[in-house]
Nucleic acid binder design. Sequence first.
DNA 1: AAATAAATCAACCGCCTCCTT
DNA 2: AAAGGAGGCGGTTGATTTATT
Length: 299
Amino acid sequence: MKMSARDHKREMSISEEDESPLSGNDLRRGPWTVEEDLLLVNYIAVHGEGRWNALARCAGLNRTGKSCRLRWLNYLRPDLRRGNITAQEQLLILELHSRWGNRWSKIAQHLPGRTDNEIKNYWRTRVQKHARQLNCDVNSQQFKDLMRYLWMPRLLERINNDNNNSSSPPSSDDAVITPPPQQQQQDDGLVVPVNNNQVLEMSCTTTETSSSSSLSTTDWMQQQQQALIVSTPAMVVSSSSCSDTWCQPPQMEYPPAHQFETTCWSSDEIVAAGVQDDMPDLWWGADVDLWYTQIMGLL
DNA sequence: AAATAAATCAACCGCCTCCTT
DNA sequence: AAAGGAGGCGGTTGATTTATT
């Protein structure tokens, strides 16, 4: 298992702490050591996950079941997706959060390989930060409108441009993980990837099996986007290419832009208004401030 | 180069729900 | 039906890293 410098440093500090271990039956807390990770991974590989308190004991881990579960779900399980949150994922997070609010685990179900913790952290560190910088409440209508009528369409535009401009294989930032073997149509109109374990548990409710069993996460994301965005204002996105089998776009009602005269700014409109049309690469990066400050000035 | 501030994210906590007995 | 345990969730903390001065 690859260990980062950060992990190594942490490991060293833990080893030093072990000279004065927790007394008696006290359970370990804090950062996990490599040895603990191995114990957990090996045990789950043989016996599977679940029954976490018993698992912790049987695996010889002096941890709570909760701690083991968290470590496995958020860090050790093999289908985790590493790296930056992609533009596609950002778009999904924004859209799903606008529907469900802080239902992180529910949102995470729609982002294969991402954990609720990761999405929650992303929201708090990036999205909330920018709401603060704009001096508005993250739950305010103003901020929601900004996301819906400016950021999301622009993000979408960027994604589409990227897709059009490159027929190349996915970049390293767009790593393909173990693809979702099956998808499950839910009553909310979205399609949920189902991992191997879930298939076993939920096979009785799996109604549709997509022919795209080798779908990469990238492809899955793109199809999800199409399902999500067909009614995004000012975006010309056809859903006709979607398979009717599993890509049924939800009928989303975008709220009226009570504050904006136009519901969305096209690139031409933005340029015509004198704003540089060069949305920064990372979208939430520091240099985006100028970009959307200019935009905000137009509103 | 050092000090400080800001950002990141792994991990914990407390509450809630569900399941088993 | 009630009690207790396990698992899941959202909120929060704090150590570490990264950026800035």
